[in-house]
């Protein structure tokens, strides 16, 4: 008879939003439900052959950032071996052309503000 009946009947951990994530910034806040300690892993290969551990502990959320474009698979494994359904995270960053154009616009606006201030009031 187990001295930890809760652990013996623990349900498999599960991601809270149904396991579908997408991001255009390379970061995402993952959250899950679990009544036990879990290990969170990430991989790009469908068979998880390149999996690496992100976190191990009793938290129920994890902030993941800095990912490049691609499709990622996330797994939660409970301490008694039960594994969650995999979550799929799709990262597709914003358009680089759009980013460069907006950076240029920002630069022009800033230069205009500085020029206006430096030039001062010439028509007093």
């Amino acid at each position: 008879m187990s001295i930890l009946p809760g652990a013996a009947h623990a349900e498999a951990p599960s991601f809270t939003n149904g396991g579908e994530y997408s991001s255009d910034t390379g970061h995402v806040l993952l959250s899950w439900e679990a009544d036990q300690r879990v290990t969170l892993s990430i991989a790009q290969d469908p068979d998880m052959s390149d999996a690496r551990t992100l976190y191990s502990g009793t938290q129920t959320s994890y902030f993941l950032s800095g990912l490049s474009d691609g499709e990622y698979r996330l797994h939660l494994e409970g301490e008694n071996g039960e594994v969650s359904e995999p979550a799929i995270l799709t990262v597709a960053h914003q358009s680089l052309a759009q980013a460069l154009w907006l950076t240029l616009i920002g630069l022009i606006i800033t230069a205009g503000i500085i020029a206006t201030i430096v030039r001062g009031a010439r028509d007093d």
Binding site: S65, G66, H93, A99, L100, T103, G106, I109, T110
Partner: peptide
């Protein structure tokens, strides 16, 4: 976290002048 040290990280580039303004 390769994107965090990537020079052409789109959202981060847009944030530079956005935050300045």
């Amino acid at each position: 976290k390769p994107e965090l040290v990537h020079v052409l990280f789109p959202a981060a580039l847009m944030a530079i002048f956005n935050n300045l303004l």
